[in-house]
């Protein structure tokens, strides 16, 4: 699939402001961004639910609608409520039946972890179970690409864990998966590649490792052991200083110089140098105002 300079506005709001993106077959890609960053709009463009005002979106080499009609796409949309008065079995069989080469329904239910709910009515399930039914709807047709819009929103930890297990099992079959999330850990743990979107633009694109490195910098921390914090910001390389309890955390873009300077002052108790976390990378990437630079890592 590919986006080329896609733009979509709602009124004055540019929800998607010129996105360029390509995803290859078999990849598991996370679309990471805060609420309102443009993730859902990007997904609706991809699925052909909306049309871009400018630019183009191609799925499997053609317009999204054609790919959807051909049964190459399954989707789990946000903000849908359970369909009343049908059983899980009826619903999934119906959806599967729309596709040219669907999964056998028992397999689809098994993969989504809802085999034992087959006879239950969809509108009488718990939130987590309902979420898995929606996941089953996305994969029932055995489509080459599944798109999951914030699939784990409102799931508890256990349900979330089970959900990702299912997702990985599906991806292992060689399918392309694109999911959106605002949870960094999820993106890092479950995707081959993370696309960070902010203010309707892609601000970074790469593996979790690459993202961390792109922001650069390390975190040097040590025990203050009673000494003051004055002068720490003046040490070579230090960008910011944070004190938590008795521990100082210095963000630095030259950790060697910082450590040497600290050593000269004898402040090396419990000294630790760690790379910046993905969390920090994400903050650094998205906190700035919308920039015109499209950064590709």
């Amino acid at each position: 699939m590919s986006f080329t300079g896609a733009v979509k506005s709602f009124g004055d709001v540019r929800a998607v402001a010129g996105v360029n993106l390509e995803i290859a077959r078999g990849e598991t890609v996370a679309l990471l961004g805060r609420n309102g960053a443009g993730k859902s709009t990007t997904i609706s463009l991809l699925l052909g639910l909306n049309e871009p005002d400018e630019g183009s979106v191609a799925l499997f080499g053609g317009p999204p609608e054609t790919a959807v009609r051909a049964g190459k796409v399954g989707a789990m949309l946000q903000e849908t409520r359970p369909v009343p008065r049908v059983t899980v079995q009826e619903l999934i069989s119906f959806v599967a039946g729309r596709y040219p080469a669907p999964l056998p329904v028992p397999d689809a239910l098994e993969l989504a972890g809802i085999a034992e709910l087959a006879g239950r009515r969809v509108d009488r399930l718990s939130g987590g179970q309902g979420q898995r039914v929606r996941f089953a709807m996305a994969l029932a047709g055995n489509p080459a690409l599944i798109v999951l819009d914030e699939p784990t929103a409102a799931l508890d930890v256990e349900a979330r864990h089970a959900f990702w297990e299912s997702m990985r099992a599906y991806a292992r079959r060689g399918h392309t998966v694109l999911f959106s999330t605002h949870y960094l850990e999820e993106a890092d743990a479950h995707a081959d590649r993370i696309v960070v979107i902010d203010h309707g633009r892609i601000v970074a694109d790469g593996t979790g490792e690459q993202l961390k490195r792109s922001v650069g910098g390390n975190l040097v921390s040590f025990d203050l052991a009673g000494r003051g914090t004055e002068g720490l910001t003046l040490l070579p390389g230090v960008v910011s200083v944070e004190v938590r309890g008795d521990r100082a955390r210095l963000r630095t873009d030259d950790s060697d110089a910082t450590v040497i300077a600290l050593a000269e002052q004898g402040a090396i108790r419990g000294l630790e140098v760690v790379p910046a976390s993905l969390d920090e990378a994400f903050m650094a990437l998205t906190s700035s105002a919308p920039s015109d630079v499209l950064e590709t890592v």
Partner: peptide, 8 residues
């Protein structure tokens, strides 16, 4: 909306 993302 869900039906719109099936081949129907």
């Amino acid at each position: 909306r869900q039906l719109r993302v099936t081949p129907m």
